[in-house]
């Protein structure tokens, strides 16, 4: 064992962690609103809209993230017609993929508020959008907060997948240091510990909100 390697490369690992966190935040910031829109679509009374949104969610949820990443890695340059950098494809894939999961959380949150509140909102003269915006969503968001935080941890853990494409987030950084220094044991143990600390910390936060909600 030679932990000197880890200490010497710790700043590098931390910059990898920063990239993982950035990717996580960008994915969440875009996929959560997208998920909200699709969730409202799934609950719409227009059958075609409901069908399209349901199909979107089910197709994405039955595929592994890594395959979705390959899809977008191949498709994004083809659709846009020019070479885009790796990060763009990765971000698009993450937003689309996790939007499907956020949709399901938001939908069950909205359903937990109940249809009567929608009727009450509509009959007091609010439009459907206003009812959603001022009555349903504020309550639903409170109900789904623990699940949302847990899902954010899942997104963070999911960022390890982009290692395969070669984007230098935490895991990829660790792998390249391990290959350079031939010290895989120390580095993988360290990386596992870093992921554990971050994920465990946030799961405590989720637990706190779960108790608050009850």
């Amino acid at each position: 064992m030679d932990w000197q390697v880890v200490i010497a490369n710790f700043p590098l690992l931390m910059s990898g962690l920063a990239k993982s966190v950035q990717l996580t935040l960008v994915s969440i910031v875009f996929s959560l609103p997208l998920g909200c829109l699709i969730a409202i679509g799934r609950l719409s009374h227009r059958r075609w809209l409901r069908g399209a949104c349901t199909a979107f969610v089910n197709v994405l949820r039955s595929n592994p993230l890594i395959l979705i990443l390959f899809w977008f890695y191949f498709l994004v340059p083809l659709i846009t017609g020019r070479n885009v950098n790796d990060l763009t494809s990765i971000i698009v894939a993450f937003i689309v993929f996790f939007a499907a999961y956020f949709t399901e959380i938001v939908r069950s949150g909205i359903q937990s508020v109940g249809a009567k509140q929608i009727q009450a909102g509509l009959s007091s003269g609010l439009t459907y959008t206003q009812t959603m915006r001022h009555i349903i969503l504020p309550q639903a968001i409170r109900a789904m907060l623990p699940a949302l935080i847990t899902q954010c941890i899942v997104v963070f853990q999911g960022t390890t997948v982009v290692y395969i494409i070669g984007y230098s987030e935490l895991l990829h950084t660790a792998v390249s240091i391990a290959e350079r220094t031939v010290r895989p044991v120390e580095l993988y143990v360290t990386v596992a510990a870093i992921y554990f600390v971050v994920c465990y910390g946030f799961s405590r936060v989720a637990r706190y909100f779960e108790k608050e909600a009850v």
């Binding site: 941890i153 390890t160 895991l171 993988y188 596992a192």
Partner: peptide, 22 residues
């Protein structure tokens, strides 16, 4: 439960492949 849930699966696979045999 906390250990196996809070480490991403890919990292766990690396641990099983490179660390555990040692």
């Amino acid at each position: 439960v906390e250990i196996f849930r809070n480490i991403p699966l890919i990292v766990q696979l690396f641990l099983w492949l490179y660390v555990v045999p040692q």
